[in-house]
Computed example of a mutant assay.
Amino acid sequence: FYSAWLTYAHQYGQYPDAAALAAYLFQRDGITAADGQPLTGEGLEAFVAVFQEREFGDGESQGEETDHEAGEQAPPAPASAETDTRQTPAIVGAQAAEGKQGLRVNAAIADEETAPAEANKASDLTTVDRYYLAWVEHQKQRGAEPTDKQLSAYLDEKGVQGRGGKPISPSTLRRYLLSFRAYGVWAEHRMRNEAPLADAVAQDCATRGITAQYNNPITATDITKQAHDFERRWKALTRYRADAQS
Results as ranks from 00 to 15, higher is better:
11 Q>L: 00
83 T>D: 11
204 D>W: 00
23 A>P: 08
78 P>L: 10
225 K>A: 09
201 V>E: 00
156 D>H: 15
87 Q>K: 12
13 G>W: 05
27 Q>L: 13
194 E>Y: 08
54 R>F: 14
107 A>Q: 05
115 A>H: 06
204 D>A: 12
107 A>W: 01
8 Y>K: 04
88 T>D: 07
139 Q>H: 06
241 R>N: 08
199 D>P: 02
40 T>I: 11
140 K>L: 13
220 A>G: 13
68 H>G: 02
180 F>S: 07
226 Q>M: 13
18 A>D: 14
213 Q>C: 01
189 H>Y: 09
54 R>I: 15
163 R>T: 12
166 K>W: 07
113 E>W: 14
125 L>K: 05
136 V>S: 07
44 L>G: 02
83 T>S: 07
180 F>Y: 13
17 D>Q: 12
84 D>V: 13
244 A>D: 11
161 Q>K: 15
209 G>Y: 01
79 A>R: 00
89 P>D: 03
61 S>D: 06
36 G>H: 11
241 R>V: 05
56 F>T: 15
154 Y>V: 10
171 S>M: 08
62 Q>M: 08
90 A>L: 06
126 T>K: 06
137 E>Y: 09
207 T>S: 12
35 D>L: 11
127 T>E: 14
138 H>W: 14
132 Y>N: 05
11 Q>S: 00
28 R>G: 03
48 V>M: 10
177 L>I: 10
144 A>P: 04
228 H>N: 00
99 G>Q: 06
10 H>N: 07
196 P>A: 12
154 Y>C: 13
225 K>V: 07
214 Y>T: 02
101 Q>V: 03
65 E>T: 15
4 A>N: 10
58 D>T: 12
196 P>R: 07
210 I>W: 00
120 N>H: 09
242 A>F: 05
201 V>A: 03
5 W>G: 10
209 G>M: 01
77 A>H: 07
29 D>I: 01
213 Q>M: 02
71 G>F: 02
72 E>M: 06
117 A>I: 02
241 R>M: 09
198 A>C: 13
89 P>W: 06
117 A>V: 04
219 T>R: 01
206 A>P: 05
12 Y>N: 13
208 R>H: 08
214 Y>I: 00
124 D>M: 05
237 L>E: 14
126 T>G: 04
229 D>A: 10
22 A>K: 11
162 G>V: 08
192 R>H: 06
230 F>V: 00
110 A>Q: 10
222 D>R: 00
244 A>L: 13
90 A>P: 00
105 V>C: 00
32 T>V: 15
229 D>R: 09
46 A>D: 03
241 R>I: 03
113 E>V: 06
13 G>M: 02
233 R>E: 02
227 A>H: 03
88 T>L: 15
40 T>N: 11
219 T>C: 04
94 A>H: 14
226 Q>N: 07
106 N>A: 09
182 A>E: 04
166 K>C: 01
20 A>P: 04
55 E>H: 15
52 Q>L: 15
229 D>N: 07
220 A>H: 03
217 P>G: 11
1 F>P: 09
42 E>K: 14
188 E>T: 13
40 T>L: 11
165 G>S: 13
184 G>D: 07
194 E>M: 11
246 S>D: 09
233 R>K: 04
133 L>N: 09
3 S>E: 12
67 D>T: 12
76 P>N: 12
184 G>R: 11
95 Q>N: 11
17 D>M: 06
96 A>D: 10
241 R>C: 03
115 A>K: 04
